[in-house]
């Protein structure tokens, strides 16, 4: 069997395994989708009074809307964390060692896991995007945000702004951002043999990274040190790309044409770098503990 077909077969089967596992473990949906939603609703409503809305083009962006792209980022991040928890479990419980001694290319281990995790993340993000519509309880802005306003235009709250195109623009960004965050989780989780260690990484590194991504508060209204931290944070650009695609460029990092292109390019670079780092770490044969 050629290298390519063995890579394809192994990647597909490892991806499929991720999907089967996901649909068999309902609690993962709670963890990675419901938690961010609750978070969004509580903070969005809670801050709605104190949030200084940005008035642009005759419209005020409220806290719910501001937090919306960041919530998508949080869903992706949490899904990445969950799927990489299972990487650690695979190592601890033995599944991974069986994969490592098989002739399957190491690349397939990375691709299967990262594409599997990213697929779940995209699926959940899409569920989240459809939520305001399904609930029918949110405002005009929320409809517009979700990219479903082409359906919403059937209602009396019709808004002329594009919906379907928003959605099309959003999808590639979701894919790239999901791949990047899942691969980052993979790189961090590889080599760890306890989920407790990954919990520490999650609380000490991943959550602060999310907080400093512009998901929660804008980059330009913070002290200088923090601003540089935020600008150095690759997640900032993923969140910004989502925000731009959702036509919230009024509160984006850069306005104009570059507003979408620049963060998108940086998000692609981030994803490529993370996948590369993951491939590199898996091809190194260990001299100490189990590879």
């Amino acid at each position: 069997m050629s290298m390519e077909s063995s890579l394809r077969l192994a990647t597909t089967t490892l991806w499929k395994r991720e999907m089967v596992r996901f649909f068999r473990q309902r609690n993962r949906i709670t963890g990675s989708l419901m938690n961010p939603i609750v978070f969004w609703l509580l903070f969005g409503w809670g801050l709605s009074g104190s949030f200084q809305g940005a008035a642009v083009a005759g419209r005020t962006i409220g806290s719910m809307e501001y937090l919306f792209p960041g919530t998508i980022a949080m869903i992706i991040l949490f899904t990445s964390i969950f799927s990489n928890f299972s990487l650690i479990e695979d190592r601890k419980e033995g599944f991974l060692q069986g994969v490592l001694v098989s002739p399957a290319p190491r690349l397939a281990i990375v691709l299967g896991k990262v594409l599997g995790g990213a697929s779940v993340a995209i699926l959940e993000a899409l569920l989240f995007l459809s939520l305001p519509f399904a609930l029918g309880l949110l405002t005009e802005g929320a409809f517009r945000l979700t990219g479903w306003e082409f359906l919403h235009s059937l209602t009396p709250l019709a808004d002329a702004r594009v919906g379907f195109w928003t959605f099309l623009l959003l999808l590639p960004i979701l894919v790239v951002f999901s791949v990047g965050l899942t691969a980052m989780g993979f790189r961090l989780a590889w080599g760890m043999d306890s989920t407790a260690g990954f919990h520490a990484v999650m609380m000490g590194f991943l959550l602060p990274m999310w907080l400093l991504s512009g998901a929660f508060f804008p980059v330009d209204k913070v002290p200088a040190v923090m601003r540089w931290l935020m600008r150095a944070n690759p997640m900032t650009y993923g969140v910004d790309a989502l925000r731009q695609a959702l036509q919230l460029h009024e509160v984006g990092l850069v306005t104009g044409l570059f507003g979408l292109i620049l963060p998108s390019i940086l998000t692609v670079i981030f994803a490529v770098a993370m996948v590369w780092a993951s491939i590199r770490v898996t091809t190194k044969r260990s001299e100490g503990s189990l590879a």
Partner: peptide, 22 residues
């Protein structure tokens, strides 16, 4: 420790393992 995915069925484990061996 068995290299099996406990959340998968016996047949799934064997099929996926077979795929890893081409």
């Amino acid at each position: 420790t068995p290299s099996l995915d406990k959340k998968l069925k016996v047949i799934e484990n064997l099929r996926y393992a077979g795929h890893l061996y081409g």
